[in-house]
Each structure stands twice: as structure tokens, then as C-alpha cells.
Design a binder for these strands. Sequence first.
DNA 1: AAGGCTAGCAACCGCACCAGA
DNA 2: CTCTGGTGCGGTTGCTAGCCT
Length: 309
Amino acid sequence: MGRAPCCDKASVKKGPWAAEEDAVLRAYVAEHGTAGNWIALPRKIGLNRCGKSCRLRWLNYLRPNIRHGGFTGEEDRLICSLYASIGSRWSTIAAQLPGRTDNDVKNYWNTKLKRRLLGGGRRPIRYALPLPQQPRLLLMSPTGGGAASTALERMQLSVQRRHVGLQDTPGLPFYSNLWPAQQSVLSPAAGYSGFWSHIQTSTYPGRVNVQDHQRAWGSGGTTPLSTSSTGETAVGVGSSSSTPAASSVTFDGDMEDEIEMLLQQIGCLEEEDSRLLIGGEAGSAGSWSSCSTPGVDSVFQGYVQGHGQ
DNA sequence: AAGGCTAGCAACCGCACCAGA
DNA sequence: CTCTGGTGCGGTTGCTAGCCT
């Protein structure tokens, strides 16, 4: 027996929200809150909408202090850092960006950042990182690979970051941009038991140790990221004063060789094809999408661990 | 000027997971 | 233990605006 649908899909309205609908929803939530029951809400206020749709509309558009578009360079770097470290946990990433929603961040990543950093897309953009030391890196869009492609993206980012010394703020590791009030969303108590060591190994190999991270963030393990019953995410005020000092970054080996080795390890490329992906010709036939090997994540883990010593 | 193509974005869908009753 | 509702996510669709030919 399957799960009962949350609403009668045939009778509820779909598509873009009208200004009147927005006004009704906004007014009700402003006065009563969501009371934790989105399913019953549309009936209560006379909206012919699915409860999930109401929730989505509120969270992504009507909520106070929502910002759309105009992502700053700082936000770009933070998104990339977090994506490389924790993957597509868009809500977690969005929680570090005041006023941003997970849907916004996801769309921004998929339509802009991913292309800018990793290349690919329907109309491939053939450049990688906009940095002086920009490597000759050309990677295809990892579409359709599911978890494997996500891991590949992260691996790409991780390798790129390690080789070009991408930093969020000169002299400061990326987490200096995080919000201390939310630190523990990434703490063991919040269920991300391996997060700190993961951050260390995947993003800043050889720079700071786990104890430094945790010390810098206070006692840790308390004050999880608070999400209110209305779905609003509390934000704190960042302070770089507690940021552990970063030691120098060291790079070894050639990035292209490294990625090639990893790709072959994953087994999604033949020897002769790898050149098509790495520093290859524009519009080549090679594609990350052909990589559906389930072991990609473990290869990625192995990679980041290997560079975390 | 008109039509085709593409990027960007809002919104939806289905699924999985979790917590509480 | 089961059921229900809330939440998060990846993937996808549909619309619109802008660019290109």
C-alpha cells in the first residue's frame, strides 16, 4: 500500500502564484504562523493549492529577508567551498548564506557556478577558475550521473582548489565566513560526525587540524542550526577573530595527471579518452555523464584522505 | 522584424528520511 | 510497530527574456 497523496492533485491549482494568493498566504502566516501543518493550511485560508506548494512558496519567496539574485563573490566562494566539502546539502549550504534559499543556491549552482568552475552545460563554457594561475582544465558537465556525478564534481573542485590555492579570504580558510551560531549544524552532534576531518582533508589538506577547527568554534556539539517552525533559519554574526591561523599550502604533482589518474581509478575512462576531458579539445565527446560507477565516492574519499596527511 | 535557440528561474514531482502520535 | 505529516533533495518542466541568425 502506497502513501496517500498529500492533496488532490487533480483539483489543486498549479503553476505561478498570483499576487492575491501571495497576499493571502503572507497575511495568514504573518498572523498565525504555519502552526506546523502545511497540509491543512491551504484549506484553512481558502487557497486552492497543495500544502507542499504553499510551504515551498513561503520558504523560497514570501519569507521575510529573502534575497534573490546578485550573488556576491564571497557567496560564490562559500558555496564552492561547502559543495566541495559536504556535497549537495543545499539547505545546509543555504543556511550559511543569510537570505538565500536552498532552491536559489541549487539553481545558482546548476546554472552558473557549475559551468563556471567545472565547464560543460548545454553550451559549454570552456574556462575553469577565474584565477591568475588558471589551469588548463576542461571538464564536461556531469549530468545524469546521480550520486556518482556529484562525487565527481566534488573531486574536481577539490583537486582544483588544492592546486590553485583557492581561498575564500586571503589568509583565511573558508569557514571564517561561516556563522558561529550555526557551526554545530556541521558538528558531530548534528549528525555530521566526519565533517571536521572531512573539511580538513578535502578542502585544506595540511593546513589546520581537527582540534583547531573545533577549538575555534567553541565547545562544539551544541546549539544546532535552529530552524523555526515557520521554516526560517536563524543566522548569527560571523567573527574571523576565532579563526585558527592557516599555515602555508603546499601543492605537489601536476593537477592534470592527478585528475587523469583518478578518472582511470574510477574506471569511467579509457586511457585514450582521458585527454579529451583534461585539457582536451572543445566540444569533445568525452563526458562525465558516462561515469556511473558506484565507487566514485570511495575514490573521492580516498583522494581527500590521501591529501590530508 | 521574425523566428529559433538558450539561459535563468520559479515551481513541481517523486522519493527518502525523520519525528511524533 | 505503523501511520502521518514535515522536510530535504535531485531531477525535471514550463515560462520568459535576451541573444543570434
